[in-house]
């Protein structure tokens, strides 16, 4: 086998399915950061994201024998587990987007000065957090994980047009929410 760093995901996954711990560790190290970022976009806290990703990787170790190298990319399988676990986790926590949306930081507080980058990032965070969970997952996969619509549609197990629709609606909703906040900042009541 090639060195673990050079081996592709599917080779490492085949090793994992054969019980090779070193292959598994290499896979975890390679995908841990992106998996955490993906989960963090969906759940409400860092701790929840850690729990989701830990659980996902343990499932991969436990069920590695279910892996079939039949053309499905490893990342598709991994991200599907992460997204599903994250959505489950969010539902268990009874996390309600509409309530969270009401907690969007008030940009009027910074009306006298230009909005600082940190405040703007917080506003974007809040706008994304207010999205329905599948739109948020779509945005995370395509934008933050850099996946194509086709790859992301496999992760979410929807058709490509449905995936495109989720993504378009997500971007429009974020944009509309940020416009609304800017209007509030500028004192426009409409």
């Amino acid at each position: 086998m090639k060195g673990f760093d050079e081996a592709d995901d599917e080779t490492l996954m085949a090793g994992t399915a054969a019980g090779d711990r070193a292959s598994y560790d290499a896979l975890v190290r390679r995908h841990l950061r992106r998996s955490l970022a993906l989960a963090r976009r969906i759940v409400a806290s860092d701790a929840d994201a850690e729990e989701v990703v830990q659980d996902a990787f343990l499932r991969i170790w436990t069920h590695a024998d279910r892996w079939r190298g039949d053309g499905t990319r490893f990342t598709t399988w991994l991200y599907r587990i992460v997204v599903n676990r994250a959505i489950d986790q969010r539902r268990r926590r009874n996390f309600r987007p509409l309530e969270e949306a009401a907690e969007v930081p008030d940009p009027a507080a910074a009306a006298d000065t230009a909005i600082a980058a940190r405040e703007m990032a917080a506003a974007v965070d809040a706008a994304i957090a207010a999205l329905p969970e599948r739109q948020r997952a779509a945005l995370s996969l395509c934008y933050y994980q850099g996946m194509s619509c086709a790859q992301a549609s496999e992760v979410l197990q929807v058709s490509i047009p449905a995936m495109e629709s989720l993504l378009v609606r997500a971007r429009r909703m974020v944009r509309s929410r940020l416009h609304f906040m800017n209007r509030q900042k500028d004192g426009d009541p409409t």
Binding site: L32, R40, E50, V53, Q54, M120, V124, I128, L139, Y143
Partner: peptide
């Protein structure tokens, strides 16, 4: 959206690796 890219601390990665 770039400004809001989630960044997880290295401590988070360490905790997950240890737990696994």
């Amino acid at each position: 959206l770039d400004r809001a890219a989630p960044v997880m601390a290295q401590a988070s990665e360490r905790r997950v690796l240890d737990a696994i």
